Amino acid sequence: MIFTSAMMINDASALTVYTAGPGSLAKKLATGYEKQTGVKVNIFQATTGKVMARLEAEQANPIADVLISASWDTAEELQQRGWLLPYTSANAATIPDSLKSDSYVAQGISALGIVWDTKSGTPEPKEWADLTTPAFKDKVTTPDPSLSGASLDLLTGLQNGMGDAAWQLFGKLKNNGMVIGGPNAQALTPVLQGAKAAVFGAVDYVSYGSIQDGEAIKVIFPASGTVVAPRPMMILKSTQHAADAKAFVDYVLSPEGQELVANAWLMPARADIGAKRPLLSELKILPENSEGSSDRAAILQRFGKLFAAQ
């Protein structure tokens, strides 16, 4: 079952999974796993920031068995802390080496792009900088990087790829009236409602789902480059259900589980499973962060100061 942040997870016999959206995918994976194994699954689904805050708060009495984050940096940090149980699933054989380690593996991958309202009367943007033009004055939103790990990944990737020019871009976006709109779905809402024309750095799978529902929006990946956000899945060392947790990871990485991932408009982690959207080979990927979490913290702080006047 799906639990909101206001609900408690107290079934000691069940497997507990903490996940940063999409909630519908988590529910389907839990249902499929339960049918296959008979093991019940409790799910806490929220933004990466809220999931991590809950995990930190429960250090003295850990509850989560499996964690699925929207930011690769989360897994690297928890591995450095010694919080993770090493496990390599047999179903990870076709997953690229860059998307797995001894202690965590990608569940799936999203990418960051521009989401544009095709009925907004604005010219179709092709590049990030197009959103700094007069046509998009006061018409752009962006997810809050303090709440969205993927949004912070984009800021980091742009800095790594562009250097100081990235901060000139962010400054121009601020001066052009771009507003920080909360988590990913919240940043998209004004565009769906017609109040804004575009999202800078939207997580693609949310928008693909909206397009399927009939919304007049388009996902655009700038040719100059973007970042992808692998969603790391890991088992907490504190788990009291290690065998069930490993079996859950196996299920998510099975063909059945990866098809569910693909149906949620994510790129499957497995290279032998198709997708309903562009794959890694079709995107120009900006350099990954290699400076560690302290560099990301500095980027987040600098971006926050830039937009503090809002």
Rank of each mutant, 00 (worst) to 15 (best):
S5K: 15
A6G: 15
A6Q: 15
I9C: 08
A12W: 10
L15D: 01
Y18D: 01
Y18A: 03
Y18R: 00
G21C: 11
G23A: 14
S24F: 14
L25S: 06
K27D: 11
T31H: 11
E34Q: 15
K35C: 08
Q36F: 07
V39N: 10
I43R: 03
Q45G: 09
T48H: 07
G49A: 15
G49M: 11
G49Q: 12
K50N: 12
A53F: 06
R54L: 01
A57M: 04
A64M: 09
A70I: 06
S71Q: 13
S71T: 13
D73E: 14
T74W: 07
A75P: 04
A75L: 05
E76T: 13
L78C: 00
G82V: 07
L84S: 02
L84N: 00
A93V: 15
P96Y: 12
K100F: 02
K100T: 02
S101P: 06
D102L: 08
D102I: 03
Y104C: 02
V105R: 08
I109P: 00
S110Y: 02
S110Q: 05
L112W: 03
G113T: 02
I114K: 01
E124T: 15
P125S: 05
K126M: 11
W128A: 06
A129C: 00
L131S: 01
L131W: 00
T132H: 01
T133W: 01
K137F: 11
K137V: 11
T141R: 08
D144N: 14
P145I: 04
S151D: 06
D153N: 14
L154I: 05
L155E: 07
G157K: 00
G157T: 00
G161E: 04
A165L: 09
K172A: 08
N175F: 03
G177N: 00
M178G: 00
I180H: 04
G182H: 08
A187F: 01
A187I: 05
L188E: 06
P190T: 07
V191H: 04
G194H: 12
A195C: 05
K196Y: 10
G201H: 02
A202D: 06
D204A: 09
Y205I: 02
Y205E: 01
V206S: 03
Q212S: 10
A216I: 03
F221G: 07
P222A: 05
G225Y: 04
G225S: 04
V228C: 13
P230R: 11
P232E: 09
M233W: 01
L236F: 11
T239Q: 11
T239L: 10
Q240D: 12
H241I: 13
H241V: 13
H241R: 15
D244W: 00
A247P: 09
L253N: 01
S254H: 12
S254T: 09
E256Q: 15
Q258S: 12
A262P: 05
A264Y: 01
W265I: 00
M267S: 03
M267V: 09
I273K: 03
A275M: 03
K276Q: 10
K276A: 09
P278G: 06
L279E: 12
E282P: 02
E282F: 06
L283V: 05
L283G: 05
L283P: 02
K284C: 01
I285T: 14
L286M: 11
E288M: 12
S290P: 05
G292F: 09
S294R: 06
D295L: 10
D295T: 09
I299E: 02
Q301A: 15
R302G: 10
G304P: 05
G304S: 14
A309W: 11
A309G: 13
Q310V: 09
Q310L: 10
